[in-house]
């Protein structure tokens, strides 16, 4: 019962926060709501026994990515969005597209249920700690994707600098 109440709170709050985020005129407000949404997502991860991911969620998403958004918005200091309308004129087309893909994805998700069940139990994770469990898996079985991810980050660093740097005359 307690589980259901907690989940219900998280679900309702997250959906309403997501709706608020995409409908704000002022980007700054939308980022503040997004921050609260990230906290709720981290809470949901804790609920699902993924502490390390919850910490990463807050450190990377809330602490780095959203601060980067804030920084860019402040750097550009644009106030014109307050005068313009929220959505593009073509928003009904977007809504129709969303509904269509929703139907498609829901059919595919709930039509085919997974067959193979893994052998990792929650008690196993809790015994060694989530960080250790993720770390062992990441550096043994998924080492190659991990290295690729680091390469992507390197490319992103170089790309961001190349794109945003002013040309030196």
């Amino acid at each position: 019962m307690l589980n259901q109440i907690i989940f219900g709170y998280f679900a309702v709050t997250m959906i309403s926060l997501a709706l608020i985020v995409i409908t704000r005129k002022n980007i700054m407000h939308s980022i503040v709501y997004m921050l609260i949404l990230f906290f709720h997502i981290a809470g949901l991860y804790l609920f699902l026994n993924a502490e390390f991911l919850a910490a990463i969620q807050i450190i990377v998403y809330a602490g780095a990515i959203m601060v980067l958004f804030l920084f860019v918005i402040m750097l550009l200091n644009l106030r014109e969005e307050l005068r313009k309308s929220r959505f593009a004129i073509t928003w009904p087309i977007g809504a129709i597209f969303v509904v269509l893909s929703a139907v498609m994805i829901i059919i595919s998700v709930f039509g085919n249920r997974f067959a193979n069940v893994g052998n990792v139990k929650i008690s196993d994770i809790e015994k060694v700690g989530h960080t250790v469990a993720v770390g062992k898996l990441l550096f043994v079985e998924y080492l190659f994707p991990f290295e690729v991810a680091s390469l992507i980050l390197l490319v992103a660093i170089v790309g961001a600098i190349v794109l945003a740097k002013k040309e030196i005359k």
Binding site: M28, V32, L35, E51, F52, A55, I56, I58, I59, A62, G63, A64, M66, V67, L70, F71, M74, G129, H130, T131
Partner: peptide
């Protein structure tokens, strides 16, 4: 006594920036 003590502190110290940035903007 959580297992992610250091990460939690790092996360919270990075959130402190929000207060400052939002104060400056608002």
């Amino acid at each position: 006594n959580i297992n992610l003590g250091i990460l939690f502190i790092l996360a919270m110290s990075s959130l402190g920036a929000y207060g400052i940035v939002l104060a400056g903007w608002a």
